[in-house]
Amino acid sequence: MIQLNQHVTPDHEVVITELEGKEAVLLHLGTKMYFTLNETGLYIWQMLNDGLTPEEISNRISGEFDITPEKAKESVLTLVNELILEKLVKVEDR
């Protein structure tokens, strides 16, 4: 299980395609699997790409949207864990 303060970065073998800025498709060139992101998922992905930790992302989401910090953490962790499982992101050991 990923820790909230660990850095998680998109795998360089992933091609992202945004559709009208509202959703996105991730395609892993190695596994050839597609993965769709909704608007929130895309937002989280962009923040991961900018180097934010899951904790920082959760804080930002609960500040910007009307959800509790616990709920935000849960959502972010659920997505990040799925992304790890699909090899779409790499957990950095820094």
Partner: peptide, 8 residues
């Protein structure tokens, strides 16, 4: 690959 992602 982006193009086919959209098609799918």
């Amino acid at each position: 690959m982006q193009a086919v992602s959209i098609c799918v």
